[in-house]
């Protein structure tokens, strides 16, 4: 078995499944947001919509889904193109830097969302 300590769930199956489930959650969330935007919302309506606990939980769920989905996807891209096979040792350094960068951006987005929702 191929070892992969930086993959999300360490197993190909769990990453694969998680990516599908999170994609469905994201579609549901964006449809929901799209539907409310389509009718045209005022600032007050928008604000009160996000004051409801259900909407906050749904939004947080969507952002956590986005985080997991993005990590799995970006990890796949990095392990395809930034590798020792393609660029020698530099590939390993670049890949690790890239993974740290991706992780940091995702982390910031999650915290920022929590701050917006409950701040």
């Amino acid at each position: 078995m191929v070892r992969a300590v930086t993959s999300f769930g360490r197993s190909g199956l769990s990453d694969w499944l998680l990516q599908r489930v999170t994609a469905v959650i994201l579609v549901a969330y964006f449809l929901c947001i799209g539907a409310s935007l389509l009718g045209g919302v005022s600032y007050a309506e928008w604000k009160s919509m996000f004051e409801g606990t259900a909407m906050r939980i749904f939004t947080l769920l969507a952002v956590l889904s986005l985080a997991a989905h993005a990590w799995i996807g970006m990890w796949s891209v990095g392990t395809d193109y930034l590798t020792e096979r393609l660029m020698g040792k530099t590939g390993n350094v670049l890949r690790l830097a890239y993974q740290i960068g991706c992780g940091l951006v995702i982390f910031v987005y999650v915290i920022w969302t929590i701050q917006i929702l409950w701040g």
């Binding site: 078995m1 190909g12 694969w16 392990t79």
Partner: peptide
Amino acid sequence: LAKLDDPFSVFR
């Protein structure tokens, strides 16, 4: 199956 469950063998 146990040997195929990593992120590369099948899931690439």
